[in-house]
């Protein structure tokens, strides 16, 4: 288990004749997604556009996205992993006890019909949202779906993609990977990158009170994180760079207003399929860009003595 079988969004636009949304509500959370990339577009391979595509929504409640779907499967809350595992067994023709199927809230007939349609598709795609990846089971749910998509390739072409949001979070992930090898949850306190989500993720570091300073760029943990994490942010010197005054700004020692990226500051935004888009500012801003502020802080820090001295250039092995 592991890996990711995926594509860029233009492939979905051109080829995807079978589209599954799992634990996501693009109609409300990604309002341009249906029209621009997936449902409504016509292409050389799908000349009738929406009519040439089958759309399935799997979610715990009938959201607005259900209206856009041909089939809606209401999975019982917390049963996504079980449902995915049952479907993985069923595509391989393995027997699944009906009682277990019933626990997911979906009938076996519905699943049989769905799997038959999936296998008949020419290019299937599964999009998954935080309703899958941030509920009970978390990354195990996402891994089950990604494996399901990979295994579907024994029958026809299938890919999967997370429905990501929150600005340029993908860009941060991409750059952290090329600079440190890891996407997030990284500690640099030994002078080289170490990775352990659950230990080095921001929320965990803050809840444990492991940091004596916080530098927040374009994020608002003060609005979303648990209370112990927020309390710690208020206790230590917290510096916020943001175009707006945020909840985090209000509990910080320093707030520096920066130009909004893409509107008044240039850069690169990585789309959720990791396609890099140039950000071309339309307006001038009296405020500096995040990049400029970080560079100037870095220049000042560079004049101070290095706190980490007498370290070797390299270590041969970390374990």
């Amino acid at each position: 288990m592991g890996g990711k079988v995926t594509c860029t969004l233009g492939e979905v636009k051109q080829r995807a004749d079978f589209i599954v949304y799992w634990g996501g509500n693009p109609a409300e959370c990604h309002p341009r997604h249906f029209t621009k990339y997936t449902l409504m577009q016509k292409s050389k391979f799908l000349p009738r556009g929406r009519k040439d595509r089958t759309v399935v929504l799997v979610d715990i409640r009938e959201t607005k996205s259900a209206k856009a779907a041909d089939h809606f499967l209401q999975v019982r809350p917390g049963k996504d992993f079980e449902l995915l595992t049952i479907m993985r067994a069923m595509i391989k023709g393995q027997d699944v006890p009906e009682a277990q199927v019933a626990e997911t809230g979906i009938s076996i007939e519905v699943l049989r019909d769905l799997i038959e349609k999936m296998k008949k598709a020419k290019y299937g795609v599964m999009f998954f949202g935080m309703g899958l990846s941030m509920t009970r089971g978390k990354h195990m749910n996402a891994a089950a779906l990604l494996t399901f998509a990979a295994e579907m390739n024994a029958f026809t072409k299938f890919v999967a993609m997370p429905m990501r949001g929150h600005g340029n979070v993908t860009g941060a992930d991409v750059i952290m990977r090329w600079q440190t090898g890891y996407p997030f949850g990284i500690s640099l306190n030994r002078g080289y990158p170490r990775y352990n989500p659950g230990e080095f993720s921001t929320v965990d570091v803050l809840v444990r009170g492991d940091t004596d300073c916080a530098f927040i760029i374009g994020a608002d943990p003060g609005a979303t994180m648990p209370k112990p994490a927020i309390d710690h942010l208020a206790k230590v010197p917290t510096i916020v760079l943001d175009p707006h005054v945020t909840h985090t700004s209000r509990l910080s020692r320093v707030h520096i207003t920066t130009a909004p990226a893409g509107i008044a500051a240039p850069g690169t935004g990585y789309r959720m399929d990791e396609v890099p888009m140039p950000l071309k500012p339309a307006l001038n801003s009296p405020y500096p860009s995040d990049e400029e502020v970080v560079r100037r802080i870095k220049e000042v820090i560079a004049t101070k003595p290095d706190w980490m001295t007498n370290q070797p250039q390299m270590i041969e092995s970390q374990v």
Binding site: G191, P193, R194, M308, Q311, S317
Partner: peptide, 10 residues
């Protein structure tokens, strides 16, 4: 990444 050689910053 976890087991291999690592460069330490200066």
């Amino acid at each position: 990444h976890r087991r291999t050689h690592a460069f330490i910053r200066s």
